[in-house]
C-alpha cells in the first residue's frame, strides 16, 4: 500500500509535466488542426534555455523560466508562419513539416549546447516532506502547483476572454470566424506561441527532474503526445487526465519492470488507445460521405 502510494505520488509530478506538454499540443491541435511533432523539441529547447538562464546567466529560476517561455514562444511563431500555407489543407504534409522542424531544433540544440547534456540542480533546497510515511520532494510539489496554475490560467483565458473565445471559434469553424471579423492567422499564431510557451514551461520544470540533453524532447514529447491522445485529442481536461495517467503508468512501470518501463508504457498505451481511439474526453466525429 505504502509502495503503491509512493509510486502514485512520484508519478504525479512527472504526470504534471506530461500534462503541460499535452496541453500545449492539444491547444495547437484544437485551434489549427495541426499535429505539431516539433512540440517535443520545443520543450527540449525550453529546458536548455531555462537551464542556461538559470545556471550560466545566474538568473533566478522563475525569471529564467519566463525568459525561456518567451524565447520558445518566438520559435513557435516562426514555425506557424512557415507552415501557414499548409493549414487546413494537407494534414499529413503538415505533420511531416513539423517533424522537419524537430530535426532542425535538435541540430540547433547540439550546435549551441553540445552533445553532453547537463544536470540542473533543484531550485528548492528544502528537505523532502514526510506525509504519512510517503516521501514527497518539495520540488515535485512546486511542479504540480505550477502545472495547476497553468491549467487554470489557460482555462480562464479560453472561457473568459474575448481572444480566448475567438481562438476556440477559429478552431470550430474558421470560415465563420473570418466572417465575424476574427483574424484567423493571428489567432493561430497566438495559439502556437502559447503552445510553445507551455512546452517551454514543461521543459524548464522537468530540467531538475531529468537530465537535460538533446534527446530530452524525444522522451518527454512522445509521452506528452500519448497523454494528449489518451485524454482525447484537443481537450484541455483530457490533457490533464491523460498526463497524470501516463505519469502514473510510467512510474508504476519503472517500479515493476525497471529497464523495460518505456516498452511496457507504450504497450499498455497502445492497447488502451485501441480500445478507445478517441481517448477519454475525445469527441466522436462523424465521418461524412
Amino acid at each position: 500500500m505504502q509502495d503503491t502510494l509512493q509510486t502514485l505520488v512520484s508519478g504525479l509530478s512527472l504526470g504534471a509535466v506530461y500534462a503541460l506538454v499535452a496541453m500545449g499540443f492539444s491547444l495547437v491541435y484544437r485551434t489549427m488542426g495541426l499535429v505539431n511533432f516539433a512540440h517535443a523539441d520545443i520543450a527540449m529547447i525550453g529546458a536548455y534555455a531555462a537551464s542556461t538562464f538559470y545556471l550560466t546567466a545566474k538568473l533566478p529560476f522563475a525569471v529564467a523560466m519566463v525568459t525561456a517561455i518567451v524565447v520558445t514562444g518566438a520559435i513557435g511563431l516562426v514555425i506557424e508562419r512557415v507552415l501557414r500555407p499548409l493549414e487546413n489543407k494537407d494534414f499529413d504534409l503538415m505533420l511531416i513539416g513539423t517533424i522537419g522542424f524537430g530535426i532542425v531544433l535538435q541540430a540547433v540544440a547540439i550546435l549551441i549546447w553540445g552533445t553532453t547534456g547537463r544536470a540542473v540542480p533543484s531550485p528548492l533546497h528544502a528537505a523532502p516532506l514526510d506525509i504519512f510515511g510517503i516521501r514527497v520532494r518539495t520540488y515535485d510539489l512546486l511542479v504540480m502547483a505550477v502545472a495547476a496554475i497553468a491549467v487554470v490560467a489557460l482555462a480562464f483565458f479560453l472561457s473568459r476572454t474575448k481572444r480566448g473565445a475567438a481562438m476556440q471559434a477559429v478552431a470550430m469553424d474558421h470560415e465563420a470566424a473570418t466572417a465575424v471579423g476574427i483574424n484567423v492567422g493571428r489567432s493561430n499564431a497566438l495559439a502556437f506561441a502559447i503552445g510553445a510557451g507551455l512546452a517551454a514551461l514543461a521543459g524548464g520544470l522537468v530540467g531538475p527532474m531529468l537530465y537535460v540533453d538533446a534527446s530530452l524532447g524525444g522522451a518527454l514529447g512522445i509521452k506528452g503526445f500519448a497523454a494528449a491522445m489518451l485524454g482525447g485529442f484537443g481537450s484541455i481536461q483530457g490533457a490533464v487526465v491523460g498526463g497524470v495517467a501516463i505519469g502514473v503508468l510510467d512510474s508504476y512501470a519503472a517500479g515493476h519492470f525497471q529497464g523495460y518501463s518505456v516498452l511496457v508504457t507504450f504497450l499498455v498505451f497502445t492497447v488502451a488507445i485501441m480500445i478507445r481511439p478517441t481517448g477519454i474526453f475525445g469527441e466522436r466525429t462523424v465521418s461524412r460521405a
Binding site: 473565445a165 476556440q168 471559434a169 470550430m172 469553424d173 470560415e175 465563420a176 470566424a177
Partner: peptide
C-alpha cells in the same frame, strides 16, 4: 448550413 460555433 448555419456554421454556428458548436462548442460555445
Amino acid at each position: 448550413g448555419r456554421h454556428v460555433f458548436p462548442g460555445l
